[in-house]
């Protein structure tokens, strides 16, 4: 709550900061200095790309993870990247390939999905290594929507990774109901047992017919709401600074969820009026929060 209070106290200041952020954003758009698209090839041979903002290695590098099937160019993600570009952090916004070489487009639900949550985290490993090779000693992971699941899963599965902080934005409930999910999981598992690895439509996240292999589906479907909360709890237990920002008008969130999250996250910031994507002017407020959180993380690490 102190963060929320601070935020409320600094409202006038935040206004000034918002104006400054806008100016910075304009400058960023106008002069995207040291901002570049980098490509690389995974050990599997799949080309991958990412947006990379170069900054001093003195600060931790930030990896911004896009939502489910999205790219870093998705509006919400891109706003975050832009917001961070003026803060002096190195920012890397990779496009999770989802099995697509050099993917630059949002993947469609109906596309053949063979990628798995684990393969996605592998790519995150790749970029983490890539940043470390660039001289960045610590990493801060910021994820939007499903990107939050990525950073949760990554930190849990790679406890030794030099991740000093996690910021999960719009970390909300699953789309599908628990029953549907359970039914689909059962079906998928049975298919696996039957070695029927063909694509089948599943309800997953916003996809009504996510065409995926059972393995693919199951890798994502295991990230139930409870697993998210459990992971948050685990990270809290491990003292990994995990900050959660949720829009007050995010339809996939409710007070119960906020309560659960708040109970397990390092901090939960709810930006009143903002939706899942922090569209309109809420992106600035989101960036303000991110900046504060980043300062907090910096402060903790120092």
């Amino acid at each position: 709550m102190p963060l929320q209070q601070t935020a409320n106290d600094m409202l006038p200041f935040s206004r000034y900061m918002s104006i400054a952020a806008v100016l910075c954003l304009l400058l960023t758009y106008a002069l995207p200095a040291r901002c570049e698209t980098v490509t690389a090839t995974l050990p599997s041979g799949v080309a991958v790309n990412a947006e990379y903002i170069v900054a001093s290695p003195e600060k931790p590098a930030i990896i911004v993870l896009h939502g489910f099937l999205q790219t870093y160019e998705f509006m919400s993600t891109w706003n975050i990247v832009n917001g961070l570009s003026s803060l002096g952090y190195a920012v890397l916004a990779p496009n999770i390939s989802l099995g697509v070489p050099d993917r630059k487009q949002s993947a469609q639900c109906q596309a053949a999905h063979t990628h798995t949550f684990a393969s996605d985290l592998s790519e995150l490993d790749f970029w983490a290594d890539w940043l470390q090779k660039k001289g960045y000693k610590s990493l801060i992971l910021i994820g939007h929507s499903w990107g939050s699941q990525y950073l949760l899963g990554y930190k849990v599965s790679r406890p030794k990774a030099p991740v000093i902080g996690l910021i999960a934005i719009s970390l909300v409930r699953s789309h599908e109901s628990r029953g549907v999910r359970q039914q689909q999981i059962t079906l998928a598992k049975s298919r696996i047992k039957e070695h029927a690895s063909g694509l089948q439509p599943y309800k997953l996240s916003f996809c009504e017919d996510f065409m995926a292999t059972p393995q693919s589906y199951l890798s994502y479907a295991e990230w139930s709401d409870q697993k998210v909360l459990d992971t948050l709890a685990q990270l809290k237990h491990n003292q990994t600074p995990t900050y959660v920002i949720i829009g007050g008008q995010d339809k996939r969130s409710d007070s119960a969820w906020l309560k659960e999250v708040r109970a397990r996250a390092t901090e939960l910031a709810v930006i009143e009026g903002a939706n899942h994507f922090f569209s309109d002017a809420f992106e600035f407020e989101l960036n303000d929060r991110l900046e504060k959180i980043l300062h907090l993380i910096d402060a903790k690490t120092q």
Partner: peptide, 15 residues
């Protein structure tokens, strides 16, 4: 992207 993905894995080419 899914088209290009098939060049990596054509398993689901028919799909």
């Amino acid at each position: 992207d899914e088209t290009r993905a098939l060049f990596v894995d054509a398993t689901y080419y028919n799909y």
